[in-house]
Design a protein around this nucleic acid. Structure first.
Length: 566
RNA sequence: GAUUCGUUAGCUCAGUCGGUAGAGCACAACACUUUUAAUGUUGGGGUCCUGGGUUCGAGCCCCAGACGGAUCACCA
């Protein structure tokens, strides 16, 4: 219960008490009648105009009987000017000398009523007539400063701190806030585009008894009342198609998906995809729809179709180049995959120095070759089309070549950001493709799904109109539109390992832990003997350690064993 | 998972050969009525990530671990 407070935190708590002693409530309940924002004030300056603003104090410049401070609101900062004898017209100067100068801190929220003016140096400022403490801040904020040459000093840059304390990151790093504003703009732009086209936004289950629609490892959970395992969504495809069977012409969903796989700078365990399905369309229509969509979104987010990503300049202006997968592989390896057997493909891949094995079927082999030799070369938005049938179990066979499917992926900067099909709606073909996936799964390809969604097949048997579907990785698209190489930068709260709680151990606990560290795991009785503690103290120590999650007692038949935990 | 770098004051970072822990900002006190990274003077503030080891002595050397970053591998 003893929280270690820094000197500055103690001072702020003391200021809080002093304010209360002066009859000032540091966390008042009443609304504050804000009528202006910093940005508007600066853009539409009117001398002497009365304003009421609110925000965090971000800097102080105290000069005797007058002071300047900066208030940061949702749109930026504005300077305020406060004069002692105007705030305190009587003999009592407490409000200025004590409350303003001493008891307020950087980070506090205050409200200010006053009028606009320009200082001698021309800075638009609010001349304070009245100020109100709205909320006291008890922890000092990091304080990046920008000097006269525009250089930022002491920037709050440690990624670990920034991701764990995003609220602080957002307060002190305006460019971070901008990324998330753009993220929201992207979602609105896309939603508007779909709504204008007449399609309907829907919601489908996140807890599913079969996690289908993609090849990925799901998170597993359990429903107590039903006493059944449930999986968290890895894709929403199968549910959206059921809705097309049900008679909607176009449905879309922004879906949080969950995949229990590795984490790195481009993968977070939960991420956001957008999937849309439109009846009576095919993948050719969807390509045109997609390029128009992305052009629209880029414009809405950045005001231009051009975007910078690292060293690349990309342009989302439609139309985009279309390259068949066969042609792509031919272009970059000189190898023609058309009509090749599994063995021929495996040999070709091995000759190219690609690590492949016997569990890989034709589709996987081609995917490996493409991924290794071609994918990275497509910088400008490019549609890769006509994927082999084996790697697209939910996609309709190509109308001209049954060994291919009517599928495209959109590549940008060497990464996939969209995936689309002429959806497979032949229920018998679909069942066979699922069964083939199960066979692959049994063979050892752990990407292929192991369970067949019978209900989805039943829906297809009732009939699904010809449909084209599209999926977009929203996080990746935000990364491209905001020039961020890490997914953690475009998620408010990226997944992190839990912060290690500092465990304050008693002397007895330390003693037991010391013995345990040299010899764990060990017999509980032996450990107790070596600790030479009284029965009562021993009991408290081992219970304390297990409760703190440092050690664990495991029962094995008759014997009790103590293990050390991370 | 592998390699590698990092972890020191609220924040950003120095820290020499192993010898009492440093700077800037922030904080406290005083001065100062239109400042601009405001200024001047003075002062306070540390679990040097954790645990072992070597040593008369460890922020620094050695071992083990935690967390994070980067690169690679795996993976949509």
């Amino acid at each position: 219960m003893s929280i270690q407070l820094s000197e500055q935190e103690i001072q702020r708590r003391q200021s809080l008490e002093k304010l209360r002693d002066l009859g000032i409530e540091p966390y008042p309940a009443a609304l504050y009648p804000v009528d202006a924002l910093s940005k508007d004030i600066k853009q539409n300056f009117e001398d002497q105009k009365k304003v009421c603003i609110a925000g965090r104090i971000m800097s102080f410049r105290i000069m005797g009987k007058a002071s300047f401070a900066e208030i940061q609101d949702s749109e930026g900062r504005i300077q305020i000017y406060i004069n002692r004898d105007e705030i305190c017209p009587t003999e009592d100067k407490t409000l200025y000398n004590d409350v303003f100068k001493k008891l307020l801190d950087i980070g506090d929220f205050i409200g200010v009523k006053g009028y606009l003016f320009k200082t001698q140096v021309g800075e638009i400022s609010v001349h304070v007539e009245e100020f109100t403490l709205l909320s006291k801040s008890l922890k000092p904020l990091p304080l990046p400063k920008t000097d006269s040459e525009g250089k930022v000093h002491d920037a709050f840059v440690d990624p670990e701190l920034r991701y764990r304390q995003r609220y602080v990151d957002l307060v002190v790093n305006p460019q971070v806030k901008e990324v998330f504003i753009k993220r929201t703009k992207l979602f609105s732009a896309m939603r508007n585009f779909f709504n204008d086209a007449g399609y309907m936004e829907v919601e489908t289950p996140i807890l599913q008894s079969i996690a289908g629609g993609a090849a990925a490892k799901p998170f597993m959970t359990h429903h107590n009342a039903l006493d059944i395992p449930l999986y968290m969504r890895i894709a929403n495809e199968l549910y959206l198609k059921r809705l097309i069977c049900g008679g909607f012409d176009g449905v879309y969903e922004f879906s949080k998906n969950f995949r229990n796989e590795g984490m790195d700078r481009t993968h977070n365990p939960e991420f956001t995809a957008m999937e849309i399905y439109v009846a009576y369309k095919d993948y050719n229509w969807m390509m045109e729809f997609t390029e128009k969509l992305l052009e629209h979104c880029a414009l809405a987010v950045n005001g231009t179709t051009e975007a910078t990503f690292g060293e690349h300049k990309i342009d989302f202006k439609a139309p985009y180049k279309r390259v068949t997968m066969r042609q792509a592989i031919l272009d970059f390896t000189g190898f023609d995959i058309k009509g090749k057997s599994e063995d021929e493909l495996r040999k070709a891949a091995l000759d190219m120095g690609i690590d492949v094995n016997d569990t890989m079927g034709v589709g996987k082999l081609i995917d490996e070759i493409f991924g290794e030799k071609c994918e990275g070369n497509y910088i400008q938005p490019t549609f890769i089309i006509d994927y082999p049938k084996e790697m697209s179990p939910l996609c309709k066979a190509h109308r001209e070549d049954p060994s291919l499917t009517e599928r495209f992926e959109l590549m940008v900067c060497g990464k996939e950001i969209a995936n689309a099909y002429s959806e497979l709606n032949d229920p018998i073909d679909q069942r066979e493709r699922f069964e083939e996936q199960v066979r692959l799964s049994e063979k050892g390809d752990d990407e292929a799904g192991g369970l067949i969604d019978q209900d989805f097949l039943r829906a297809l048997e009732y009939g699904m109109p010809p449909t084209s579907g599209l999926g977009i990785g929203m996080d990746r698209l935000v990364m491209f539109l905001t020039n961020n190489p890490a997914i953690q930068e475009v998620l408010f709260f990226p997944q992190m390992r839990p912060e290690k709680k500092a465990v304050a151990l008693s002397d007895e606990e330390k003693l037991v832990l010391g013995i345990l560290k040299s010899k764990a795991p060990m017999e509980l009785a032996t450990l107790k003997d070596q600790s030479a503690l009284s029965g009562k103290k021993w009991d408290a120590a081992i219970k304390g350690l297990t409760k703190a999650g440092v050690a664990k007692v495991v029962k094995e038949g008759e014997s009790l064993r103590v293990e050390l935990l991370g």
